[in-house]
Design a protein around this nucleic acid. Structure first.
Lengths: 234, 234
DNA sequence: CTATTAAATTAGACCGATCTAAAACAGGTA
DNA sequence: TACCTGTTTTAGATCGGTCTAATTTAATAG
């Protein structure tokens, strides 16, 4: 019943909320969805009328429980589709996002469950983001951003990397900074450049925009991260 | 670039055209898509402006080559998705249609090709309908309707069955009248009831609405029809 | 406390897809 | 020929989602 657009808004609001917490501002949503603020205002009005979010004029917006559920359903479909594309159709991790963005609005619950079963109930998508189970009991976490988690000299395990921006993702894949790898923070400059050393000893300078999208847990994991054993800790 | 609605219209027009030939009337389209004739008129106007079909007011409509191509692309995606759902996700033949109808508008060319490859270039979907190859060089045929092809006493091989109407399809599956089975026409009544005898010797009375959706080739095939060896003959 | 500025909202328009109700048309019948 | 009858088109409205331009509000600096 919800339209594609409605699902996109809920998903975007959910993401922002889970990073910087509510309230979520009009401009944050506009930014995330590449819409004008005016458009967002009117959409958000109608979302509020439907009970999917609560809204304080000029203040921002927060998902209601109903909105949260709807958002999680989209996230679940998105990540399952990503996992499916990578595992069954040999997509590269960098390629799955756009396809999943289109499909996530149009697969049935039946399809979702069958895919989940086919993949044997994966815990995470190819970027390491946890896949909410069918009951949506999502712990929905896994790591904090690089600079928040680690001081220079400390090491951590990459929990996941953002799949939002294709360029950023490609940068990280090239540098072999992917879920499961260990990184040591060498240095953080005043202007946000983060230098890290990876497993193989090479160093990479990550611009702020990139570093902000790498999520790690402090310390090192012994278990490798081929699939997704890291759901629901931290 | 074409919207879902545009693709739906093209697909519907293509189907009608390939059954009863052009021109296709407003009411035929309205019927097929469950829209009002007024709606169809206005949509068809815009399709004509885009060069996807040619139109004679009060006469009907015919796909242009461009429209035909666009329609075949949708058909190709639809049938590949159906085949995929049945083979990879264990859907029953009766269940694939609706899911494919939703997905067909949103899978990329990349996805389509990968699925096609995964399935090893299937010739037909689970109902026996031929899948146009990537170059769309569709022979796009396979069989004529039961009553047109066979006189009482004659036998034929089921080439495909329509997946349009879920009830009809279920009826046929129950009667084990599926692509590849041999049927003998026992009798045809004046009011359109067709009695057929299947492989196993049982007889089934098919109401006109059902019989019209069974496509056969005269005579019997020795080859079985598990997948789709029957593309492009007849 | 006022003035500036950045963010958010309102006002008004547009487009695509749909509908209902009314008018125009085409084909067959008397 | 003139009239029905069913089909098609036109006219005009609505809805969802979007935009631009103008206005209002909240926060901040003086």
């Amino acid at each position: 019943m919800p339209t594609d657009a409605v699902e996109d808004y809920l998903k975007a609001i959910h993401r922002v909320e889970s990073r910087s917490g509510p309230p979520v501002s009009t401009s944050q949503i506009a930014e995330a969805l590449d819409k004008t603020p005016a458009t967002v205002t009117s959409m958000v009005e109608s979302l509020a009328e439907r009970g999917l979010l609560s809204r304080e004029k000029y203040e921002g917006v927060e998902l209601t429980p109903a909105g949260e559920v709807a958002a999680l359903e989209v996230v679940r479909r998105h990540r399952l589709i990503e996992a499916f594309l990578a595992e069954q159709l040999d997509y590269e991790p960098t390629e799955v996002h756009d396809e999943a963005d289109a499909l996530e609005h149009h697969v049935s619950e039946e399809f979702t469950r069958r895919v989940e079963r086919l993949l044997d109930y994966p815990a995470a998508d190819p970027h390491g983001d946890p896949i909410p189970p069918a009951d949506l009991s999502a712990p929905e976490d896994a790591g904090t951003t690089l600079v928040a988690a680690l001081e220079p000299g400390e090491r951590g395990t990459v929990a996941r990397v953002s799949d939002r921006d294709a360029d950023v993702l490609e940068f990280l894949v090239d540098a072999e900074i992917t879920p499961g790898t260990t990184v040591e923070v060498v240095d953080i400059t005043s202007f946000g450049l983060v230098t890290v050393r990876t497993d193989d000893g090479t160093e990479h300078g990550l611009p702020e925009a990139v570093a902000d999208r790498v999520y790690v847990r402090r310390g090192t994991d012994s278990a490798a991260a081929t699939d997704g054993q890291e759901a629901g800790d931290a």
